[in-house]
Design a protein around this nucleic acid. Structure first.
Lengths: 220, 220
DNA sequence: GATAGTTTCATACAACTGTTTGAATTGCAA
DNA sequence: TTGCAATTCAAACAGTTGTATGAAACTATC
């Protein structure tokens, strides 16, 4: 153990390089050169390249999930076990969006890394994401408590759409900026959060008071 | 030219293998073995591996885009140059969803290939997707005509969210099925289309008559 | 200050990758 | 049939990759 110097130098260098150039064209040799350590150090400290990537992703990923659950728990406690749907959705997408968007020049390495991870989806990261279901179930539960008259199917679809808007906006932020010729301001993170939460709330509450059946737009 | 036998055998084999096993662990040697042709044939007929992948993706991609524009044009002509927003959105997300979802056992190779392309996002495909902006602009234009009192920013955000819901649902269909324990039926494609169109329409029309400013959910 | 355990290092390994080569084969036209 | 171009083929190429090895350097304990 002693000093983690080499180990953390690898983590720092790897996160920076992956963030800047993507997973597919950064090799272990690039990483150890950047970190100023020996090639064998990666396998010595992490076991394999994939385990290094996994550790990078897990670290950032649990940070986001912890923040999500913190916001969720705070909201439910304040409401006596039942939080408003908007606040639940904000706890779901807020931390993710705040962690990845914002003014580009002050965007952290961690943020850029998570964007990469969202775009490229390399095997070790995909494996971790697949274990995220239990985490999402907690939000599904809270949403069900917030909207008890809503069917499970609608809850899951609402959850799916909320995540869809958040992740797609992160992943395609560059394209949206170009398409809108800069009119959509992705640096105003709180505005993005508000938009996603607003639409997701509508998706989950539309026609709520009237009938349990989900309202649909008539085809043609 | 003569008979495209070798060329099309490569295309067929490559699409099938990429669809089944993903881009990252299918090599040219796998493809030529499956196609029953010589290794050098790929470079002879396509120039490089990336150009082969690009051709596969472009073929399917223009099919979808053509279908999209066909539906859009039909709708606008029928409405005298102005189509209902629901129909425009349906033309945008319908072909994509229909091309990728549906009962798994009868899902075509092309469909499975496009799902892969959506998940893995390999360089040659990313390059092609970046040229899709002009195509999307046509939809932005139609949407602006359908909702003239709506700001450009809101139009672009609505377009972004519609695509987000469609693509994320395709990409994460397996996870949504697992999360909802099968309650969300992704085989009922027209139901999925209706849900996406419904939510996107709400996103674009909420608070429409009252004020031009986009309605927001209050923070906290 | 010798010893045991940890960490670093240069180097080699073994396998796999996409691509190229140049000769053989094929198919078509004169 | 002859000639020429297009196509196929086996083989090699050149480079890269992640990983393993075994010796050297370091560190802390006794």
């Amino acid at each position: 153990m002693a000093s983690d110097h080499t180990r953390s130098a690898i983590l720092t260098a790897a996160e920076r390089l992956y963030a800047d150039r993507g997973f597919s064209d950064v090799t272990l040799r690039d990483i150890v050169a950047e970190a100023g350590v020996n090639l064998a150090a990666v396998n010595y400290h992490f076991g394999s390249k994939d385990e290094l990537i996994a550790e990078l992703f897990v670290t950032r990923s649990v940070q986001t999930n912890r923040e999500r659950l913190r916001e969720l728990k705070a909201a439910e406690e304040q409401g006596g076990g039942r939080a408003p749907i908007e606040v639940i959705l904000r706890a779901l997408v807020g931390p993710t969006l705040r962690g990845c968007l914002g003014p580009e020049n002050q965007r952290s390495t961690a943020a850029r890394f998570m964007i990469r991870a969202s775009i490229e989806s390399v095997p070790p990261i995909r494996r971790i994401k697949n274990r995220e279901i239990d985490h999402l179930r907690k939000f599904a539960g809270a949403m069900r408590r917030a909207l008890p008259e809503r069917s499970d199917v609608d809850i899951y679809w609402g959850l799916n759409f909320a995540l869809a808007m958040a992740h797609h906006t992160i992943r395609e932020s560059e394209r949206l900026t170009k398409l809108s010729e800069g009119k959509c301001d992705l640096d105003d993170v709180e505005d993005v959060v508000a938009r996603v939460v607003s639409v997701a709330t509508m998706a989950l509450t539309a026609g709520k008071a009237e009938t349990k059946a989900a309202p649909r737009v008539a085809a043609r």
